[in-house]
Write a protein that binds this DNA or RNA. Structure first.
Lengths: 117, 117
DNA sequence: CGAATACTCAACCATGTGGTTTAGTATAGA
DNA sequence: TCTATACTAAACCACATGGTTGAGTATTCG
């Protein structure tokens, strides 16, 4: 759980930029080269390339060099880690789950009582 | 959906720091003052205070000034937004949820149909 | 009142960030 | 082979970040 920490730093930092989030969105459709990733943005090629590097370092993108083009594909495992971290706070934003939790808690109490008896 | 973008920048940036993530963890237990939030960390009081400010600006923490102490409580709505963003990639890391997603999508379609009618 | 407490603000520092441009490397294709 | 393509690397810029210290502002309490 603590092992996530380093990952999470990099992943959340990578996600904190709208360009990079958009890039991930495009990669969700299909694999793309650096050039294809770069074109939608008003930015130099090198600039976009640096964003891809950040995503790669965060483990969100894997690169396959094929000839002179670099094919990038989405790697979702680290997104799953980030999601897992966020889910720990789910009960704070989801009242329905709060009620469920209360229910389960009571069930647990009932069980505990039975065990004691 | 695009409206999230500004929020997401701030939220993900706030979450990219382990000190701030730990602070949120503590706030999940109970409301805390700035001083209580600061003590666990090897850091000046003012330094910790700046972290709280970042969380506050990201909308993750609400502050209630009570006399000379500032009580902070977790505000999870923005975490929910971040979670919603991440969930769009769920199918990439969880094959089982893929089926669920398809199901929900059909339900949504059914609902949309009803609304239209 | 006076002193301790809880906190902010401002200035400062080193480093990191997002962006650029220019130059360089390696591959593909005429 | 010669040139266009796809990309990286490096140097540079302005600005943000995470951290510090020191001073300032309320508020509480003896």
């Amino acid at each position: 759980m603590v092992e996530y920490s380093r990952h999470l730093d990099a992943v959340f930092h990578a996600l904190a930029d709208p360009t990079r989030r958009a890039m991930l969105g495009h990669l969700a459709e299909r694999e793309l080269t650096i050039g294809e990733l770069a074109t939608p943005f008003h930015m130099s090629f090198a600039g976009a390339s640096k964003h891809v590097r950040v995503l790669e370092n965060a483990g969100l993108v894997k690169r396959t060099i094929r000839g002179r083009t670099h094919l990038c594909r989405l790697e979702a495992a680290r997104l799953a880690e980030a999601n897992a971290w966020l889910r720990r706070y789910e009960r704070f934003w989801n009242a329905k789950l709060d009620a469920l939790e209360a229910l389960l808690l009571e069930e647990d109490k009932a069980k505990a009582k039975k065990v004691k008896e």
